[in-house]
Design a protein around this nucleic acid. Sequence first.
DNA 1: CGGCATCCCTTAGGATACTG
DNA 2: CAGTATCCTAAGGGATGCCG
Lengths: 115, 115
Amino acid sequence: MLDRSCIEAIDPLLEILDGKWTLPLLLELFVGTKRFGELRRRLDPISPKTLTDRLRLLEEKGIITRTQYSGVPLHVEYEPTERGWNLQPIFAAMWAWVQENSLSDKHGTEKIALT
Amino acid sequence: MLDRSCIEAIDPLLEILDGKWTLPLLLELFVGTKRFGELRRRLDPISPKTLTDRLRLLEEKGIITRTQYSGVPLHVEYEPTERGWNLQPIFAAMWAWVQENSLSDKHGTEKIALT
DNA sequence: CGGCATCCCTTAGGATACTG
DNA sequence: CAGTATCCTAAGGGATGCCG
């Protein structure tokens, strides 16, 4: 099932998920729609620059939407798109792995095979 | 199912998967056990330094094993551990997402909501 | 062959101040 | 409030050369 063709294929996805804060950010939006300031607080100590960078990229890739409500003070909300929600299984798989494999923090299983 | 607790929980996993080459590298090993040189060629243009860095980290985290066969010239093989194989569902989920969502390369769905 | 050791460089991301 | 504009640092990764 997993063959060489997969390797290049998932590249565009890796581009989307890349970045220190992308996954935590997406998880926050999966939990619920949030405003810029909320995200900033939740993801503390993220910098405003980084947060905007990521939000813009994810928007560009069609993973989240930015909704601006007119009025002062500004009110902007971010939430996953359909495409974005479809990423959930990936997180679920990660979550499952952590549950079952992080417990025993196995280290270096070095093998030396004698000819 | 996805709540706040997941966010911190998957952090150790993100640490493992981090790095430009980690996923392609793991995919290569899922396809089949490989030697250092093979990996280097397959992952071209990766640098030897980066490749060793990643291999060492993954070994340290218990995701892959390094098996050294004595003799000259050296012969070393890398393959996923049990923990490593367990990561497959994650890749499968990524693969599935790409299949179903990459086709239409949707871009910026900007919304302006009027009060 | 399978790596280290070095040096170098690009860039993601942090800190801070300011604006519509 | 929701960013933008600057400046700056840290570090991941590239290139190269050497060694057991």
